[in-house]
Write a protein that binds this DNA or RNA. Sequence first.
DNA 1: TAGATTGTTAATCGATTAACAATC
DNA 2: TAGATTGTTAATCGATTAACAATC
Lengths: 206, 206
Amino acid sequence: MDDKPIPDIIIGRLPIYLLALQHFIKEGRQVTSSKELGERLGISPAQIRKDLSQFGEFGKQGTGYDIPFLLEQLRLILKVDRVWDIAVVGVGDIGHAVAGYQGFADRGFRVKLLFDKDPAKIGEQVGNFVVQDSANLVEVIKEAGIKVAMIAVPASEAQAVAQQLVQAGVKAILNYAPINLNLPSEVHVQYIDPLLHLQRMSYYLI
Amino acid sequence: MDDKPIPDIIIGRLPIYLLALQHFIKEGRQVTSSKELGERLGISPAQIRKDLSQFGEFGKQGTGYDIPFLLEQLRLILKVDRVWDIAVVGVGDIGHAVAGYQGFADRGFRVKLLFDKDPAKIGEQVGNFVVQDSANLVEVIKEAGIKVAMIAVPASEAQAVAQQLVQAGVKAILNYAPINLNLPSEVHVQYIDPLLHLQRMSYYLI
DNA sequence: TAGATTGTTAATCGATTAACAATC
DNA sequence: TAGATTGTTAATCGATTAACAATC
């Protein structure tokens, strides 16, 4: 019956709610409301209630939302109640920063494999990992059963790397290369490019 | 008369068009069409034409768009026909990666100042810069007339840093700290948080 | 009980797409 | 001329907001 998929724009706001709830937890808070959350995030209370109502009834009239309960529900919905292993391709500045970043684990992710094609980098120790040869990427990732990857190679190589990742069974890609990837529609791709954000803002300057 | 502001969602797509055109240029291409651009970017041709038509008539019926001309127009619209100096606050992994990144300059931006509050880092040489004391942030940025900044400090410090930046006259902030900033509405803020992207994609996994 | 806040419906608002005359 | 593609209008689609009965 009701198997209309939830709009992706709603899915995109859930991690923002999750993050805010984690801050509330740190502050020792127990209960919040759509009004309070909305003020904190610059989102209307109606929208927050509508978003959450797609997944169930998590609040209580007159009171609001129990923070630890809602947090747990969002973790379940977003499937970050478990830890996803990540493969990182490209060990430049970004690859290094990501490999050393400690904040992933308690939010559902963990870097597990590092690849580069530069012979000077292969075998190098970065954080807790040894950089592996990109040439073996497909079999190593397939063997490890990894579903999530980050691309941090130059734009000129990103499309080819992405296709190998798909071949290896990766279903979600976070792409730091400044180029649009054309991949099968069942593979999810997100882009991170600081320049895009900066250029968007400079429109409004002066 | 016609002074309705252009929707921000359109502004947000212009840098994507610009990037694609730069790739075309590299490939030695001279002319493109909304159809071709759309296929490359996964955006409908109608939307691309509609977006561009907000700013003028840049194409030619039957032919399409002259790439160097459209590129130049987009650079003018986005105000990246000049170079904007950037102040970076927080010299951890991200601050380092940003300071060393070479790709900004030809896309309208240039890192100019680096700040940190850690005495061990102040005075340190990073890339071509000497890390300065965050305590002097307001006066140094004001003196330099800088309007664009990046925040790469821990979440707990980000709001305070942001307020100082605003005080210093900064009008556009790219925030790497995983927290929502509450600032005057005339200040533009964009967020970069890889975890938000990853959590959004993990919803679709399995 | 009185006050607060939810979940949901209906109304509004805004963005996307389809279609086509104009024209290179 | 014939074919291609623009810029734009109108139609469609989807997202946001306002409002309120239900109820803690």
